[in-house]
Amino acid sequence: MNKTIVITGGAIGLGRELTRLYCKRGHHVVICGRTRSALEEVRSAHQNVTAVCADLAAPEGRRHFLEEIHALEIEVDLLIHNAALQFTYDFVKGCVPVERIETELLVNLLSPMELTTDLLPLLKTSGGARVVFISSALARVPKRSAPVYCASKAGLSVFARALRYQLEDTGIRVTDVVPDLIVTRMARGRGDKALSAFEAAGKIIAGLDKGKDEIRLGRVPILYLLHRFVPGLAYKVLKAA
């Protein structure tokens, strides 16, 4: 059965691969992004894509994306919160731009909360819908250079679990995806052991097909095991990542 899938940040990196694979299955995929050229490229490659140019850091951008979804008059079967930003900061040196902190938190944390809240009625009518949050291992074991990103992903992971509790009797499932480092623009040049976006997307979809509430990719299970038994070593490993 064809489904309607909403993916934020669906035109680049991991989001693009998720879009491509779900389109290949014949599903209708609704994506958003800030770069019109990237959106047009995906839309031209897949007839079953609805692409919306929207900046999720801006209230009007989030509102525009939601209005476009509601205008389609569809049920939403799968909502994947994939869009994210990561900036580096040095609080010791000072002059940390508050606007940049706000932007990062808006995209990584507030936007998934707001979009989920607004789209819950469409998810409820679907029957067996699922909300997916792309989190990060840095939510549990942070690194020094990106404290706001780590904090936002920690908040997202906690929100996902609490939301799962609230939706237990609604038929809507919630999945927290914890990827290893993925080869995207965000992670460019950060290691040769990173997963390809294609490989990560395939593993995520396979986990969702199995109905998993948590999907840990790559070396994340090892990191979590290390964090459980030797937390100091886990923190040391990722501190300067």
Score class of each variant (00 low, 15 high):
44 S>H: 06
44 S>G: 01
45 A>M: 12
46 H>R: 01
50 T>C: 12
51 A>V: 08
52 V>H: 11
52 V>R: 11
52 V>M: 11
52 V>L: 10
54 A>K: 04
56 L>P: 03
57 A>M: 02
57 A>H: 03
57 A>K: 02
59 P>L: 05
61 G>Q: 11
61 G>R: 04
62 R>M: 14
63 R>I: 04
64 H>Q: 14
64 H>R: 15
65 F>G: 11
66 L>Y: 03
67 E>K: 15
67 E>R: 15
68 E>H: 11
69 I>P: 05
69 I>M: 09
71 A>V: 01
72 L>K: 14
72 L>S: 08
73 E>K: 15
74 I>R: 14
74 I>G: 04
80 I>K: 04
80 I>C: 07
81 H>P: 08
82 N>H: 05
84 A>E: 10
84 A>Y: 05
84 A>Q: 07
85 L>K: 10
86 Q>G: 11
86 Q>F: 03
87 F>P: 00
87 F>W: 13
87 F>A: 14
88 T>M: 03
89 Y>I: 01
90 D>R: 13
91 F>C: 03
94 G>Y: 03
94 G>E: 04
94 G>S: 09
95 C>Q: 13
96 V>D: 04
96 V>E: 11
97 P>R: 00
97 P>V: 02
97 P>H: 01
98 V>F: 15
100 R>V: 10
100 R>D: 13
100 R>I: 05
101 I>C: 13
105 L>R: 01
106 L>G: 05
107 V>D: 13
109 L>T: 12
112 P>L: 10
112 P>M: 08
113 M>K: 08
114 E>T: 09
115 L>Q: 07
117 T>F: 08
117 T>N: 12
120 L>G: 05
120 L>M: 14
121 P>T: 07
123 L>E: 09
123 L>R: 07
124 K>C: 02
125 T>S: 15
125 T>L: 12
125 T>V: 14
125 T>K: 15
126 S>A: 15
126 S>E: 06
127 G>A: 09
128 G>S: 10
128 G>M: 09
130 R>G: 01
130 R>Y: 01
130 R>V: 00
132 V>L: 09
132 V>C: 09
132 V>Y: 12
132 V>R: 07
133 F>E: 12
133 F>K: 02
134 I>H: 11
134 I>N: 12
136 S>W: 06
139 A>K: 08
139 A>Q: 11
139 A>T: 01
139 A>R: 13
140 R>C: 02
141 V>F: 00
142 P>S: 04
142 P>T: 03
142 P>G: 00
145 S>K: 11
145 S>W: 02
146 A>E: 14
146 A>Q: 10
146 A>N: 12
147 P>T: 04
147 P>H: 03
149 Y>D: 13
149 Y>F: 15
150 C>W: 09
151 A>R: 10
153 K>C: 05
153 K>E: 11
153 K>Q: 13
154 A>L: 12
154 A>E: 10
154 A>Q: 13
155 G>P: 08
155 G>K: 06
156 L>H: 02
156 L>P: 05
157 S>H: 07
157 S>W: 01
158 V>P: 00
159 F>R: 01
159 F>C: 04
160 A>Q: 09
160 A>Y: 10
160 A>E: 10
160 A>K: 08
162 A>D: 09
164 R>F: 00
164 R>L: 00
167 L>V: 06
168 E>Q: 14
169 D>R: 14
169 D>I: 00
169 D>M: 07
170 T>C: 08
171 G>K: 03
172 I>Q: 06
172 I>M: 04
172 I>E: 08
174 V>F: 03
174 V>M: 02
175 T>W: 01
